[in-house]
Design a protein around this nucleic acid. Structure first.
Length: 265
DNA sequence: CAGTCCAGGCGTCAACAGTC
DNA sequence: GACTGTTGACGCCTGGACTG
């Protein structure tokens, strides 16, 4: 998860709840054809009355996030994440199209839990497609996310000491135990407790994602080209072997005839 | 001619393997 | 353990063939 979060100042004893979206939500869509939405909730830590906010994130598209109490909406750049705002605000984050729910609580022994969430996604029903199920059964072991979903959610991990570091006003939280990958969450807090994601970081993440997509696009093209080449190669080989087989059958046939002929003489 | 079907191609995601 | 490349799977689009 390459998300970012906001928080209002409390640091080292922060609890985070990380909820993942269903995997089907983003699979296979080209940005211009399908909109994938994510819902993110954040409970702010501290004494401040915890506030929850929901936002809708559309990967690869400009997204708008609004606080629960309606007030602000923030335009998000393509690709990543997030948001900010007042005590009643919130957050965001998405990993390559999947969504995350982050929850921060002020208890001492930090706990991160993760669980699947699919209700927010209008394309999530794809997961129920018999075709997809059949294929997964045939060719793939279940993903860790699916396993988590099947278990009803939750994976608990303790944030190790030092996972949250602050430098120059920028907080970096290493979050693990979610999809097997983990994530680095970076955010900053302004005066009056508002959170924000520094522009350069956002730009950097967006740039990295686009670079990765571009490389993968080209890799996919090359992969298909090689696959076609390989298949053509196999087809040629089949043709050659069929000819050889035919020739050998003919040879055998004529030898048999010759043998019978000599035998009768 | 409009509607349907099908094959082929593309972009993306996710899993996995290899490398450093 | 993080990164990167490869590739299976999926959904979508497009163009051509077929049909009523």
């Amino acid at each position: 998860m390459d998300g970012m979060v906001e928080e209002n100042g409390t640091t080292n004893t922060t609890n985070v709840t990380d909820v993942l979206s269903s995997p089907g939500s983003s699979s296979g869509a080209t940005p211009q054809h399908q909109v994938v939405t994510s819902i993110v909730q954040l409970t702010l830590p501290a004494q401040a009355p915890s506030a929850q906010v929901q936002s809708v994130i559309q990967p690869n598209q400009q997204s708008v996030i609004q606080t629960a109490s309606n007030i602000q909406s923030v335009q998000l750049p393509k690709g990543n994440v997030i948001l900010v705002s007042k005590p009643n605000s919130v957050i965001h984050t998405t990993t390559h199209g999947t969504l995350q729910t982050l929850q921060i609580k002020p208890e001492p022994n930090s706990i991160i839990s993760a669980q699947g969430q699919s209700g927010s996604d209008d394309s999530g029903s794809d997961d129920e497609s018999p075709k997809r199920k059949y294929r997964e059964m045939l060719t793939r072991r279940p993903s860790y996310r699916k396993i988590l979903n099947d278990l009803g959610g939750a994976e608990i991990a303790v944030i190790p000491a030092g996972a949250l570091q602050t430098e120059g006003g920028l907080h970096t939280l290493a979050v693990s135990g979610t999809t097997g990958g983990g994530a680095i969450v970076q955010y900053a807090t302004g005066q009056d407790g508002q959170f924000y994601v520094p522009g350069p970081i956002l730009e950097d993440q967006t740039r990295k994602r686009e670079l990765r997509l571009m490389k993968n696009r080209e890799a996919a093209r090359e992969c298909r080209r090689k696959k076609k080449e390989y298949i053509k190669c196999l087809e040629n080989r089949v043709a050659v072997l069929e000819n050889q087989n035919k020739a050998l059958i003919e040879e055998l046939k004529s030898l048999k005839e010759l043998y019978c002929q000599q035998k009768t003489e």
